[in-house]
Amino acid sequence: MAEPNILLTRIDNRLIHGQVGVTWVNHLGANLILVANDQVAEDPVQQNLMDMVVPDTIQTRFFSIQKTIDIIHKASPRQKIFIVVKDPHDALKLVKGGVPIKKINIGNMHYEEGKKQIAPTVSVDEEDIKAFKELAKLGVELDLRRVPDEKGQNILDLIK
């Protein structure tokens, strides 16, 4: 079975918004945005709101983490897939489940109580740091940047 054509995986707790639906999609040349998130997979209202941001030429799918793991290998080679997840824990579940993710873009993780800000749009706690370190051990490149033309940084350099 051929490996799915995953162009990039992005961690963004907003999931699909203008930056993802237009800027990143155009930069990558993606024709499919796959949101892997258990809550959104069950919420048609959120799905519809996210679909409004995406050009009509781009397909969207809203799958649970498990469904993504189960069917990603059935993707057509014509599908140029951009996966979006809410946090590093979901990304780690995908990788451990066999989704062939080689690079993760960390774009947005809002500050909340108990998290420390490590970049203008990224805040982490100890559990997030553990997940990032485990992803790195599994061979995943971790690139922190908001938009494609920004210079990326390895998140591990910021969380040591």
Rank of each mutant, 00 (worst) to 15 (best):
M1V: 07
A2S: 15
N5W: 10
L7Y: 01
L7I: 08
L8H: 08
R10K: 10
D12K: 02
N13D: 15
G18S: 05
Q19N: 12
N26K: 14
H27M: 05
H27K: 10
H27G: 01
L28N: 05
G29V: 08
I33D: 06
I33W: 14
L34S: 04
L34H: 01
A36R: 11
D38Y: 15
Q39W: 15
Q39R: 14
A41E: 15
V45D: 11
Q46N: 06
Q47L: 10
Q47Y: 07
Q47F: 09
N48F: 11
L49I: 14
D51R: 13
V54S: 07
T57I: 04
T60H: 04
R61S: 14
Q66E: 12
Q66W: 04
K67M: 14
K67N: 13
T68M: 06
I69E: 04
I71Q: 06
H73T: 04
K74N: 13
K74Q: 14
A75P: 03
I81Q: 05
I81K: 02
F82C: 02
V84T: 07
V85Q: 07
P88S: 02
P88H: 03
P88F: 01
D90M: 12
K93T: 00
L94Q: 12
G97F: 09
V99H: 05
V99I: 05
I101P: 00
G107L: 01
G107W: 05
N108L: 13
M109S: 11
M109H: 01
H110R: 12
H110K: 15
Y111G: 09
E112A: 12
K116M: 12
A119M: 09
A119N: 06
V122S: 06
S123V: 00
V124N: 03
K130F: 06
A131G: 08
F132N: 02
F132S: 00
F132T: 00
E134Q: 07
K137S: 14
K137F: 10
K137A: 15
K137M: 13
L142V: 01
R145S: 03
R145A: 05
P148C: 12
P148K: 11
D149Y: 08
E150F: 14
G152A: 14
G152N: 05
N154L: 09
N154K: 04
L156N: 04
D157T: 09
D157S: 08
I159W: 14
I159F: 09
I159G: 07
